[in-house]
């Protein structure tokens, strides 16, 4: 590892865990799309699943994982190509993406979970 600091360790671990999670999700996601080829009723029944409270909460988790993985990936690219190898810079970027992840999660979580409280979902 290039920068052995606590934040670096944590972002490295989170990047792997979210990466594995998203990869597994993507496979299931594509397999689910097979319902499009089976027929309209089958597909409509399949997507009803995503409107359940469990899936709405899971979608918040998915959004968080994707946001973290994407922003941290961007951080890695910036570190690689800026040529700035100080742990201070890596730490600084780490806290910026923590901030950005939380910032983007707020409106996203609100939109995803709002129907739960309005009784639309389920």
């Amino acid at each position: 590892m290039r920068y052995s600091i606590k934040e670096g360790m944590l972002s490295w671990l989170l990047h792997r865990l979210t990466g594995i999670g998203i990869f597994i999700f993507l496979i299931i996601h594509v397999m689910g799309a097979i319902y499009l080829k089976i027929g309209p009723e089958e597909w409509n029944h399949h997507v009803e699943l995503f409107n359940t409270p469990f899936f709405r909460v899971a979608e918040v988790g998915l959004m968080g994982a994707i946001l973290w993985h994407g922003l941290n990936g961007l951080r890695i690219i910036i570190i690689d190509f800026s040529g700035i190898r100080t742990s201070h810079f890596a730490k600084f970027l780490f806290w910026i993406i923590v901030f950005l992840t939380i910032l983007l999660m707020l409106p996203g979580t609100y939109i995803l979970l709002k129907p739960l409280f309005e009784g639309v979902a389920g």
């Binding site: 997507v47 995503f50 409107n51 899936f55 996203g108 939109i111 129907p115 979902a121």
Partner: peptide
């Protein structure tokens, strides 16, 4: 998720 919403994915 935001423009359509998962309830409109027929």
């Amino acid at each position: 998720h935001f423009i359509f919403g998962v309830e409109n994915l027929e």
